[in-house]
Amino acid sequence: MENFIDLLFSSSNLVLTYLLLLLFIYWILTAVSGIDFDYDVDIDVDVDMDIDLEAVDAGNMDFEDVSSGEIDREHIVHKRRKPLKWWQVFLIYFNFVGLPFMFTFTSWIFFWWISTVTLTSITHSADNSIGHFIMIGMMIPALFITKIFTIPFKGFFKQLNRDGDTPVDFIGRQATLSSTISGDKMGNAEVLADGNPMSIYVKSLDGSELRFRESVLIIKQSNDKNYYLVSKS
């Protein structure tokens, strides 16, 4: 046991061991205490990180659960259909797109860690330069293992909404605006579903101004599934 602990905290495995421990603590805290760090990220080729600032009102910013936060393929598309950048292709190919980012990231770190620990143990190189080369070299193979491992989960997560529950049908429900919207400006609205208040992104159906705390009717969802179109109720 002592030798095993020494192996885990050897110079070659130390960084990955600590990183995996931090991820383990993160998942425990998320599961037990329900920590909810919400964020909403749209990626656009023009500026690399295209965040609709109009959709974020001061003091009313929503952050989506990091553990369930997804980057959708629709977000990684240039408005004029230019080729994707290398990092966008990377995210899509290795399933960081279409799956909760932290799920894929944790899987990658785990496979990288277990591969490095196993090889440095077999080669008795945990505390020398060969072990460091093994650690760096296993980064890419671990990505391919992660890709294979996460493929079956893509269909599962598609059936869930961003909070990990069965999707709620908001169409036809009443909502209360948390910000003023008009034209192409998006904002937030609070809707009561199954006894629970939920926050959604909304845009005016006909572009007319809808004011803060006004009651609106949810008409339909946008084609990219990112927001809902509403009108006066």
Rank of each mutant, 00 (worst) to 15 (best):
F133W: 08
F24K: 09
F101V: 14
D127K: 05
K225N: 03
S125Q: 13
Y18K: 09
T123H: 01
T120S: 04
Q159D: 08
P152H: 02
N128A: 13
N60V: 15
P141E: 01
I71R: 06
L14F: 14
G187D: 02
K154M: 04
D206I: 15
F9M: 07
I43Y: 02
M198L: 14
G187Y: 03
E214H: 05
K225L: 04
D50S: 15
G98K: 00
V15C: 06
Y228K: 07
P152Y: 00
L192T: 10
L229Y: 14
H132D: 13
E74P: 02
E64S: 09
H124C: 13
T104D: 00
L84V: 13
D57A: 08
P83V: 15
F63P: 07
S222A: 14
H78D: 10
T120D: 04
K203Y: 05
H75Q: 11
F105K: 02
R73I: 12
M186F: 03
V32R: 05
I35E: 03
L192E: 09
S10G: 07
I145E: 00
L143T: 00
G164V: 15
L143V: 11
M1G: 07
L143M: 13
Y201D: 08
F110T: 09
N60W: 08
S12R: 06
I200S: 00
D206N: 10
D184V: 15
F212K: 15
K225R: 15
M49L: 12
I136D: 08
T104W: 01
T176R: 05
Y227L: 15
N161L: 13
N223L: 09
V45K: 12
V202Y: 02
P152F: 00
S222C: 11
A142L: 06
L210T: 05
L143K: 01
F133K: 09
M49G: 15
N128H: 10
F111W: 02
Q159V: 10
N60I: 15
S33M: 09
V216W: 01
T116Q: 03
I28S: 04
V47S: 11
R81M: 10
D36W: 06
L229E: 14
V66N: 02
I28E: 04
L192P: 05
V15W: 07
I218G: 02
D46S: 14
S129R: 10
E54M: 15
D36Y: 09
E70R: 02
I219N: 10
S68F: 06
D52P: 13
M135A: 10
I219F: 09
G195K: 11
F111H: 00
F157I: 07
N161H: 08
Y93K: 11
F110C: 03
G183C: 07
D52G: 14
D62K: 09
N3V: 07
Q221L: 03
R173H: 14
E214V: 12
N161D: 14
I35K: 08
D165C: 12
Y228E: 04
F103S: 01
L22M: 09
D48C: 07
A142Y: 02
I5S: 03
V45A: 12
T120I: 06
S68W: 08
R213G: 04
S222G: 13
N3F: 07
S11F: 06
S33A: 14
F105H: 02
N223W: 12
F94E: 07
T120P: 01
N226Q: 13
